[in-house]
Nucleic acid binder design. Structure first.
Lengths: 348, 348
DNA sequence: AACAGAATTGTGAGCGTTAACAATCAGAGG
DNA sequence: CCTCTGATTGTTAACGCTCACAATTCTGTT
């Protein structure tokens, strides 16, 4: 069809203009939906555009408008269910608003990696960044980095003056703990996430607050690293307490800070011959798709990750387009999902 | 420090040139590592760059070089463990090669959505696209779309003339099936993924081939949609067969096409009072992090998602930079992970 | 029919960079 | 001391688009 030219450049606006018999500026107007163009002209231009398969050159556009319409995302641990789901919601929202999303995944997320990720994105001219960096140290590093564009955190806490979106982790933890107490347990044990994580802290805080409000001295906190293995280890320890019996605090209910660790806890209890929820009730956090099929189906807290993604983009775009002023922090409501693992009547 | 100007533009190359007392072209040379610059000059320029906090404008650069150094990724179902892990590997690799990665997530991924995703990326000038679109219909649509840049598929099969990277799904399925037969089972049942997925097809094909080579007539295939729920349903059906007993083919071993469905199968069997692996052995595919903690720990096939991501970027960049000619298709080796769910001695 | 005013279209400049080429400078050789 | 070569630096012109403004064409009045 085309001539056998070697280096066929894509058509430019001038080509379209020639084809349509108008000036390049008119083509530009048509393409950006300017109202003052005669219908017939618009029609001609549109036809020429289609015929040539023309596409505006975004680099040229960005050069003159100083708007790249590109957003950056920095995320740690994107293979996990939570961050991955947030990313999806975020990308959809960005695309709806006409932005392109460029993602940088960090594996461990040292402060160093963070800086270079920001640099990487900055050098491509992103107009803003969403940082899914749930560790306290990251948020700290971010705040100190002082990027040349707005940065919105996800699960970044609200201590620092960065705008952000979070699930109300503390509320979620309260809901679980209250649920367990209401089921008649005299206390609730807790397997927490790693220390540096804001989510761990908030979940632990919610759990502790409920116990203290009920006049119960919180038992010692066990700590994991979010992995099933670490949950398994914690579960073994709990099983020991549960069976020892003479120990001070009875183990009849456990709030585990995420579902993956809860899976490990469940296995450890099972292996120790302890029935769930008959002898020990277990609850998790996140509501990963597998949770409903755990042995037994897991009571947990559902996070609306998609909403978190959407709202973070909303917030970021507000900042970019100058609609938002301060370091606002949005909270998304969690939802308690009750399943067999905490059912009082259950005996499995 | 700075004047109270309203619209402070970022410094340009000319600013740096002035500051360093050289021409903008020299600055350009320093920044792009051109050899013919005197060390002293280079030094001055570097200092000026740092002092002004200068950054090259990527839009201007892209405009003149016609290289955006941006890659696009189109992915369906990015919240799942597999695609999410692939994405991570892919992003790391791209960044190492100096490319920016822009991702578009499709929820369901109709052919229509695919086209608009490609358009979205194209209008931002990506130089190539990796498509993680494991459904046959998507790949078909992609091949017909005839994008203005190279497209590499992940798990896209090799029928069409698109270059791609896949796990050797068929080999993985063979390994599992052979493992089960070797354990003494007279046949192996199969819970497959949805019809349109190439991964389903390949896994089913591998399973079928092994049975037929062993002179065994493959039992009827049950089909799920990758979700734990669908696995649960299939598991109920299998439990029925297993207990009915008089039915033709005994149910003592099941190869489930992914780990999530296997979780559902395990629950259904457990609820029916069938012991795993004692009465029925179960194997999955993917090796999600939870698999090791399933009741019982699941025998499965590990995919090196990170490698898949890395190699797909390698292939794409080869095409972009003109090093690759044909529609090469790379296969990544799977690895059989044997756990309790298929242990012959086991009786739990 | 003539004119104001709006609607529509065209013209030229400039966005910040790299590529191509021209100019200058340093050191080697005669 | 001068010429010549290669290393180093500078100059100018794109790249493809939008913005600001100028020019033109329509309207509807008087």
């Amino acid at each position: 069809m085309a001539h056998p030219a070697e280096d066929v450049r894509p058509p430019t606006m001038a080509d379209v203009a020639r084809e349509a018999g108008v000036s390049h500026q008119t083509v530009s107007r048509v393409l950006s939906g300017h109202p003052n163009v005669r219908a017939a002209t618009r029609e001609q231009v549109t036809r020429a555009v289609e015929q040539l398969g023309y596409r505006r050159n975004s680099a040229a556009r960005a050069l003159v408008t100083r708007r790249t319409r590109t957003l950056g995302v920095i995320a740690v641990n994107t293979a996990l269910y939570g961050p991955a789901s947030t990313l999806t919601g975020l990308q959809e929202a960005a695309r709806e608003q006409g932005y392109l999303v460029s993602t940088v995944s960090l594996r461990t997320g040292e402060g160093q990696g963070l800086k270079s990720a920001i640099d990487h994105l900055a050098s491509w001219g992103v107009e803003g960044v969403v940082a899914i960096t749930p560790q306290r140290s990251h948020v700290q590093a971010l705040a100190e980095l002082d990027a040349p564009f707005p940065v919105v955190t996800v699960e970044g806490g609200h201590q620092l003056d960065l705008p952000g979106v979070s699930l109300d982790q503390e509320l979620g933890a309260r809901m679980v703990t209250e649920h367990l107490l209401a089921a008649g347990h005299s206390t609730v044990w807790h397997v927490a996430g790693p220390d540096d994580w804001l989510e761990s802290e908030a979940r632990t805080a919610g759990w502790r607050a409920v116990l203290e409000e009920s006049g119960i001295t919180p038992p010692r906190v066990l700590t994991g690293d979010w992995s099933p293995l670490s949950g398994y280890r914690a579960g073994q320890e709990l099983a020991g307490f549960a069976l020892a019996r003479r120990g001070a605090t009875p183990v009849t209910a456990v709030f585990v800070a995420n579902d993956q660790m809860a899976l490990g806890v469940l296995r450890a209890l099972r292996e120790a011959g302890i029935r769930t929820p008959g002898q020990v009730a277990v609850a998790g956090f996140d509501d990963i798709p597998e949770a409903e099929y755990f042995p037994p189906p897991l009571t947990t807290v559902r996070q609306d990750f998609a909403a978190i993604g959407r709202r973070s983009i909303g917030l970021l775009v507000d900042h970019i387009e100058g609609r938002a002023r301060k370091a606002e922090h949005l909270l998304v409501e969690p939802q308690l999902i009750m399943r067999a693992s905490t059912r009082p009547s259950g005996d499995d």
